Simulated scan of single mutants.
Amino acid sequence: MSIASHPYPEVKIERCTGCGRCVAACPERLFTFKVVGYRKHATLTAPERCTQCGKCIVECPFNALS
């Protein structure tokens, strides 16, 4: 994650399975789920509050956060 280009994690929707590990890992509780059709994926609700700790990126087993 490059702080200069993106100061907060981005969810790659095509890779996200909606497992919830990023939701559980985020100490600020900034993630929630968004349902599109029959599929859910994580979404960052308040990117301006992100502390850039990187815990969500580390916990994602599907490399869906960058």
Rank of each mutant, 00 (worst) to 15 (best):
S2G: 15
S2L: 12
S2N: 15
I3M: 09
I3L: 11
I3H: 09
A4Q: 12
A4S: 13
A4M: 11
S5D: 14
P7I: 08
P7Y: 11
P7S: 11
P7T: 09
Y8T: 01
Y8D: 00
P9H: 01
V11C: 05
V11S: 03
V11R: 03
V11P: 01
K12P: 06
K12G: 08
K12W: 12
K12D: 15
I13V: 15
I13D: 12
R15G: 03
R15C: 07
C16D: 00
C16W: 00
T17I: 06
T17G: 03
T17H: 03
T17A: 05
G18R: 04
G18P: 04
C19F: 03
C19D: 05
G20P: 05
G20H: 06
G20I: 06
R21E: 09
R21T: 08
R21C: 11
R21V: 08
R21P: 04
C22L: 04
V23I: 11
V23L: 11
V23A: 05
A24R: 11
A25N: 05
C26H: 01
C26N: 03
P27K: 07
P27H: 09
E28P: 03
R29W: 06
R29K: 10
L30T: 05
L30R: 04
L30V: 07
L30W: 04
F31K: 03
F31T: 02
F31V: 05
T32M: 07
T32L: 07
T32V: 07
F33P: 04
V36L: 10
V36E: 13
G37L: 12
R39I: 08
K40A: 02
H41L: 04
A42K: 00
A42W: 00
A42E: 02
A42S: 09
A42R: 00
T43V: 11
T43P: 01
L44C: 05
T45M: 13
T45G: 09
T45Y: 07
T45V: 11
T45D: 10
A46K: 14
A46R: 14
P47E: 03
P47Y: 03
P47R: 04
E48N: 12
E48T: 10
R49H: 14
C50K: 02
C50S: 05
T51C: 04
T51S: 09
T51R: 09
T51N: 06
Q52G: 03
C53T: 03
C53D: 05
G54N: 07
G54W: 06
K55V: 01
C56D: 00
C56Y: 00
I57G: 02
I57S: 04
I57W: 04
I57F: 05
V58T: 14
V58C: 10
V58I: 15
V58N: 10
E59Q: 14
C60F: 00
F62N: 12
F62E: 11
N63M: 12
N63A: 14
N63T: 12
N63L: 13
N63Q: 13
A64M: 01
A64F: 00
L65Q: 01
L65E: 00
S66N: 13
S66W: 08
